[in-house]
């Protein structure tokens, strides 16, 4: 088993989830509560990674962050390093790739918070941020947790995007799914099977725990 690859995958998944909570939550809130008509366009863009082949997404990310592109040049000027075939590049690609998995459950949960609860909070003197923190976020917590867990599990298992943007550099971009692929290529079925089983078990456990927690969460808030 490739412990280095597993550790890298966990780090990548955690960083991606963190980034998606910070960036995805405001986006999800807007998607869940806005009544603007052109919202559907944004919804479609967010959902693109669900249907796009990972290689296509990976290809565009690779082109976008290459040292010849404006983004790539700007990043290099800012940090002195490049994005393609690095952990940073992988993180950018993962955030985009897992965006719908995080944003969609959050947006649904935010959209289900009744408007009169927000109005009640406002008339009781609470501003928009306070209303979000004290009322919207706690009520939408199951959706937020679902989004975060799905993003984590999805990033843990990504393959195509990683290969396109990150390549296969041990300790830097070689994630656990790529290590499985390598083992199979080398006809080392035993090692591949071991890692695959571990990935399967971890994914199952994470999902089972999440759904179990949600059931409990609903039970203590009856009458919704």
């Amino acid at each position: 088993m490739d412990a280095q690859a597993l550790w890298l995958s966990v780090r990548l998944a955690a960083a991606t989830t963190g980034a998606l909570i910070v960036l995805g939550m405001p986006l999800a809130y807007w998607l869940g509560r806005s009544t603007r008509r052109w919202k559907v366009l944004v919804e479609a863009v967010v959902a693109l990674p669900l249907v796009l082949p990972p290689t296509v997404l990976g290809f565009y990310v690779l082109v976008a962050v290459s040292p010849r592109s404006p983004i790539g040049r700007w990043y290099e000027a800012l940090t002195g390093s490049r994005l393609p075939f690095t952990f940073g590049g992988l993180l950018v690609a993962s955030v985009l790739y897992s965006l719908p998995f995080a944003v969609q459950p959050m947006a649904v949960a935010f959209g289900q918070v009744e408007r009169r609860l927000l109005e009640a909070s406002w008339t009781l003197g609470e501003g928009r941020l306070g209303t979000f923190a004290r009322t919207v976020a706690p009520l939408a917590l199951p959706g937020i947790v679902t989004g975060a867990v799905l993003a984590f599990a999805h990033t843990l298992g990504e393959f195509g995007v990683v290969l396109m943007v990150g390549g296969n550099i041990p300790g830097e971009t070689r994630t656990v799914s790529i290590s499985i692929y390598d083992h199979v290529q080398a006809l080392d079925y035993a090692a591949a099977g071991e890692t695959a089983a571990l990935l399967l078990a971890v994914s199952f456990l994470v999902l089972a725990i999440t759904y179990g927690l949600q059931r409990r969460a609903w039970a203590v808030w009856p009458g919704r």
Partner: peptide, 13 residues
């Protein structure tokens, strides 16, 4: 101001 909705909009949590 205090505002009361038609349905009491209590925070369920």
């Amino acid at each position: 101001v205090g505002f009361l909705h038609q349905e009491p909009a209590l925070f369920p949590h």
